[in-house]
Design a protein around this nucleic acid. Structure first.
Lengths: 150, 150
DNA sequence: TATTGTTATACTCTATAACTATA
DNA sequence: TATAGTTATAGAGTATAACAATA
């Protein structure tokens, strides 16, 4: 893609970066922490001070609620989080981080912050154009892991 | 996430938007065109005037080359693209769009451009901060499909 | 020897639908 | 009736490893 001359949708730019970022961090997650990307992302999603309902997690992950069951199963099996009953509404299960989970989350957030990548939506026309220019420049660096230039 | 007060990595912002955008466009792809997100993305990746080697496609998709076989299989089965031999290097298979593929691609790119979302990397510190502000504002609008506020 | 693409395998993600237990 | 979470299912994405054909 990147039909030259034609307008390149902002969506496309966003996805290009997101794919790269996700790919890079998926490798980090697996090699360093033995987690999938979705598991790592979910772990980061939950603040130690603010346990989160599974329903909300599915919203944040942008997937159906049924998928969260499996993701949490695997994270729970690894000892990083726990299901806890909600006393006010017994249908709800709240996910809390264990101490291990909290520690791992801190380490991962550290890695992510250091690797620092970026992203976007809902701006004024001017802001959008401003952002767009930044994104174009941001994407100008080729990816190392790709043998485009070999 | 979004630990208030603390620094939120740009990566995190990028992923939040990317997840939303990907989710939205995955629905579009399925409901309107009976494609998965990866299939739609791959279709858009290939310009009608510039057939693309499968190896390059795997780079662009950020996945192993073995996965591209299946993705192209499915798109080929639907009549949107074809494998063509490369006369200069017979190891390489070049993917070309069929007329149907080209037409569908145009329609999809139209949809994407209209939906217009955005995205990022490798900027100066000042540009990065500028971008960061834009992203924070960009993410300030809640997602409708999520019952966070219900 | 190295590279391109395929195949086989195993695991994860994903949506859908049907189910339970709650509300 | 509606919602939160689970289970079952089927399909797709993903990495790894082994392979054939080619360079």
């Amino acid at each position: 893609m990147l039909d030259h001359k034609k307008q390149v949708s902002a969506y496309w730019l966003l996805m290009q970066v997101a794919i790269r970022a996700r790919h890079d961090f998926a490798r980090l997650a697996e090699k360093k922490y033995q987690l999938t990307w979705a598991q790592m992302h979910t772990l980061c999603l939950i603040e130690p001070e603010h346990p989160m309902a599974m329903n909300l997690i599915s919203c944040q992950l942008g997937c159906d609620a049924s998928n969260v069951t499996g993701i949490i199963d695997r994270l729970e099996a690894q000892g990083y989080m726990l299901r806890r009953d909600n006393p006010f509404d017994r249908r709800i299960k709240t996910i809390v981080l264990t101490n291990e989970g909290t520690m791992l989350r801190t380490r991962i957030l550290n890695d992510i912050t250091q690797a620092g990548i970026t992203y976007v939506q809902n701006l004024t026309t001017k802001e959008h154009q401003q952002l767009y220019s930044l994104l174009v420049k941001a994407l100008s660096t080729p990816t190392k892991s790709c043998n485009i230039n070999v």
